[in-house]
Structure formats: C-alpha cells, structure tokens
Amino acid sequence: MTDIDTPVNNGVNTEALLGAREALSDAPEAAEFTWRANCSWVGGTFSQTTVDGFSGLGQEHHHKTPYSFDADHPECFASEDRGATPPEILLAALASCLTAGVASVAQHRQIQLRSVTATVEGKMNVLGILGADPDIRNGFNDVTVQFDIDADASREDIQAIVAQSQKRSAVYDMVTNPTRVAVEVS
C-alpha cells in the first residue's frame, strides 16, 4: 500500500536546483565556478590535500570546514600505506558523484529511495605506470560501477535514474571524456 500523504523525500532540494538552473540560464557569468585543491608533500609517496575555497555565483565561497584527503601508495608498492591511492580517490569521486545524481534524479521523479550502494572497480595494468611497456596506458582500462538500489520503482525506472545520473555527472564526464590539463611550475 502506498501512503499518499507521505511526500517523497530523499533529502534533495530539487526545487532550489531547478530555480538555479532557470536563474543561471539568464546570468551565464554567475554559472562559472572554479574548484580548488591544495596538495602538500609530506614524505615518501604520502601527501595531504585540502579543499576549502571555491568561487561561483560571482563570489568566493568556503566549505563549512576545510576537508582533507590523505593519499599514499600501499605496502606492496614499497610504500607505507598512510592513505588511499589517488586512483581510489578518483573511484570515490566517481561513485559519490553518481550517487548524488541518483538521489537528485529520484527526488525530481518523485521516487522514494530506501538504500543506494555502489561498488566501483577500476582495472589497471601497472606495467604502464612502471614504464615497463609503452603500449599499456597508465590509467584505468575499464571502470565498472555496480549500483544496488532499493526504491519504490520498477527496474526500468531505476535504470533510467542511473542513466540520467551519468548524463548529469561532472566526474563521469571528466572520466569518460578528454579534458585539457595544464601543469606548470611557479
């Protein structure tokens, strides 16, 4: 039985997002955002990255508190394993971006989610990063995301939500499409 008095609530304010879409379409300069991260080498392959400020809507913003990420290599790479590997952080970014999209799209389509989990795998041949075989790329050959979603919806509707979340995902776009990267030394 569906209780028609209980509104769908995935905790996403889609009305605000739709309002922003409308407003920013008329003020495209305000839609230009810059995201930043600051990384410091600690020792060995261990580094710490902090995110805090970003700009958008014509002004500077700060997170409620700075967030940091510890990155290192595991012991089988002769490192001390003081943090996640950078490729794992990328998988985390992809999964969390798609998951946020699933919640938003489901809210917009008035579908109540009960649970959403994603298992992400990236396959990599390390002969690439070791420089041992020039025909093997450094990065992932294949990335798979397995969503397990419990919701008041048909399998087709859930597939459509997941498909739409890919269509609107920043990290999915960055992983699947070429991106210009400029690395300079100051």
Binding site: V143, E156, Q159, A160, A163, Q164, Q166, K167, Y172, D173, V175, T176, N177, P178
Partner: peptide, 30 residues
C-alpha cells in the same frame, strides 16, 4: 562514442557510449 577531441592526428571518443545507448533504448521502450 561521442567525438571528444582531435589531437596530434588522433580522434578520442567518449567512454559514455554504453550510457547513451542505454538511454535511447529505455526511451524507445517507454
């Protein structure tokens, strides 16, 4: 996939092909 870039004589295509096909199939079935 969708053409993303042409650089040094190489065309690069998006890895999103499976998703655009899935979306088209879902919409057709609807």
């Amino acid at each position: 996939g969708r053409l993303g870039r042409i650089s040094d004589g190489v065309a690069q295509f998006s890895g999103s092909l499976a998703n655009v096909c899935m979306m088209a199939d879902l919409k057709m079935n609807r």
